[in-house]
Amino acid sequence: MRARTLLPATLAAALLTVTGCGSDGGSASAGEAGASTAAEASSPAASNGSGSGAEGAKVPEALNFTATTVDGKPFDAKTLAGKPTVLWFWAPWCPTCKGQAAETAKVATGNAGKVNVVGVAGLDKNAAMRDFVADTGTGSFPHLSDENGEVWKRFEVTQQSHYVILDKTGKTLYEGVLPGGKGLAEKVAGLTG
């Protein structure tokens, strides 16, 4: 039991050591950052990826995982297949993340039905994650409670306030920090034509 309580704290300490909240981690395309990772293939949630997701689309390995939302509901990422997807990695105590909330919610609302937007909360307890969603008005799209950092590890995210943008085939097109969410709408517009 003690190992369970130490894992989130250890992950948080390691991530804070690598980068701080809101540091400009730069912008890199998938090719530059090695977005298709061995971590994805070795994830316990990964399988052969031959299933189908939304609208019968083939499920890419990147979306072959399950999680739980901050509301306690089961979440199957396979349902995201076939549409571009924005994964927004945030932490409840991060002021930079709070600064991105309004723009991320605006993009989610403006692209409903065309683009999936999913928040991936980590580095804290679920109660703080729920409070963040309520306080920032971002409840219009799902938020995963990733207390153990499994989804963060899958996408090799090492800092909060980080976006990973996938095309409809699951290929990572962008990953990095977008201060205040600036540039997110333009990146998403490029995916929807």
Rank of each mutant, 00 (worst) to 15 (best):
S161D: 06
A105R: 09
T79Q: 14
G122L: 09
G119A: 13
D71L: 13
T136F: 04
K98Y: 02
S27T: 00
H143R: 03
L80K: 02
K73Q: 05
R2E: 15
T136H: 04
H162V: 02
C21S: 13
G110N: 05
P179K: 04
H143I: 02
A62C: 07
P8S: 15
P8D: 15
H162T: 04
G113K: 04
V70K: 10
M1Q: 12
P92F: 09
V107F: 03
G72A: 08
G22I: 06
D131F: 02
V18E: 15
A62D: 02
W88C: 02
L184Q: 01
L63V: 01
P84V: 05
V164T: 04
L173E: 06
R4L: 14
T85G: 06
G119Q: 10
A121F: 06
E103F: 00
E103L: 04
E32R: 13
T37M: 08
V120F: 03
G20A: 14
G31P: 12
A57S: 12
E40V: 02
F155D: 09
Q160H: 06
H143Y: 04
L11S: 09
A54C: 14
A185H: 01
W152M: 15
N148G: 07
L87E: 11
E150Y: 01
T66F: 03
G72D: 10
V59L: 14
A185F: 00
E55F: 12
M129N: 06
P8F: 15
V164P: 09
K58T: 10
A105P: 14
